[in-house]
């Protein structure tokens, strides 16, 4: 494949005739808003960008299991325990299909996992905040999964087929997750004084980090433009964020609780929701590994991987022996 150089979002390169033809077909597919499939020719930058985005998404599902798994053994009712286990299990499932979808771009799961464990791949920063109380299970479901849904629903139409299709299934389950989170908060909000306080405290802690899940402001988001040109991303970070704020601003009233945002309002003129300035210094610090739980989350993942090594080796050895036996019989 010819080497491409990215300059200002446009590809300039010496292309072979096959590549030129492929590029033309790719451009046409994007222009008519159809889907690119794994065997189709695609620009290297598109492949790379999607591999990064999809694997980050998969890693987020896997690391995101940890703060919630933290409350499975202490869930305050058996029904809640059961729902929480189902939810965390769904997340493992999402991670699996996202890794599989990413593999169709040519990078295998072991490599992607190595990138995560080596600290070369990112995952959603929100999971570097601790889940301190039971109410955090509510806030994570309502706000974190809610923000994820707002981000992901448009991705169901992403130009890369396997990604879009994975998103359809994931969004369905995420809507159940958001609902269970809201239900947890609703129960707490209508409960004892201590429960109500717990709920408000969780919302206070997760509000800003949840808004930051949409990524930096459009002006500071270098990948956004190209991603929109490729029909992967459909709406800007700021647009999705303000829509999400509007949604939760209404829902919080049902809870009888408040969002910790003195500037929150709907601007009739622009039809936009206005929210407070977010602390992007904090965001950047967390992304660079300095959040409250980055070290803990990564250590836990590495530990599980290392402690599981002998199990995976045994499974592989067993599979080899079975294969050899089969061949001997044949």
């Amino acid at each position: 494949m010819a080497v491409h150089q990215e300059t200002g979002g446009h590809l300039t390169a010496v292309q072979s005739p096959e590549d030129a033809e492929g590029q033309a077909r790719f451009d046409a597919i994007i222009a008519e808003d159809s889907r690119i499939e794994p065997r189709d020719w695609m620009p290297e930058a598109y492949r790379k960008s999607l591999t990064r985005q999809m694997s980050q998404h998969a890693h987020s599902e896997i690391i995101g299991m940890q703060p919630e798994a933290n409350w499975i053994t202490r869930a305050p009712s058996l029904k809640r325990k059961s729902i929480l286990i189902a939810k965390v299990q769904d997340e493992a499932g999402h991670g699996l299909y996202l890794y599989s979808a990413t593999e169709t771009l040519g990078t295998d799961r072991d490599t992607l996992n190595d990138q995560l464990l080596a600290g070369r791949a990112k995952y959603s920063s929100i999971f570097n905040y601790p889940a301190r109380t039971w109410a955090d299970m509510g806030a994570i479901g309502w706000l974190v999964d809610g923000a994820a849904i707002a981000n992901q629903v448009p991705l169901c139409r992403a130009s890369y087929g396997p990604y879009g299709r994975a998103m359809v299934r994931i969004c369905k389950e995420e809507s159940f997750h958001q609902r269970q989170g809201f239900e947890i908060l609703l129960e707490l909000a209508n409960g004892t004084e201590a429960q109500r306080k717990m709920a408000q405290d969780a919302i206070n802690r997760f509000y800003a980090p949840a808004l930051m899940m949409f990524g930096p402001s459009d002006n500071d988001s270098p990948n956004s433009k190209q991603s929109m040109a490729w029909n992967v991303k459909r709406f800007s970070n700021d647009d999705l964020r303000q829509r999400f704020v509007g949604m939760i601003a209404e829902q919080v009233k049902v809870l009888g609780l408040t969002l910790p945002d003195p500037e929150l309002r709907y601007d009739e003129e622009t039809g936009q929701w206005i929210h407070m300035e977010l602390d992007w210094d904090e965001f950047n610090r967390v992304i660079k590994g300095g959040g409250p739980c980055n070290a803990q989350r990564m250590a836990r993942r590495r530990e599980a991987h290392e402690e599981g090594a002998w199990v995976r080796e045994a499974a592989a050895a067993y599979a080899r022996k079975q294969q050899e036996q089969k061949e001997q019989v044949a």
Partner: peptide, 10 residues
């Protein structure tokens, strides 16, 4: 949960 030897085991 979240500590299995591989994702399938989780």
């Amino acid at each position: 949960v979240s500590r299995g030897p591989e994702l399938e085991e989780d």
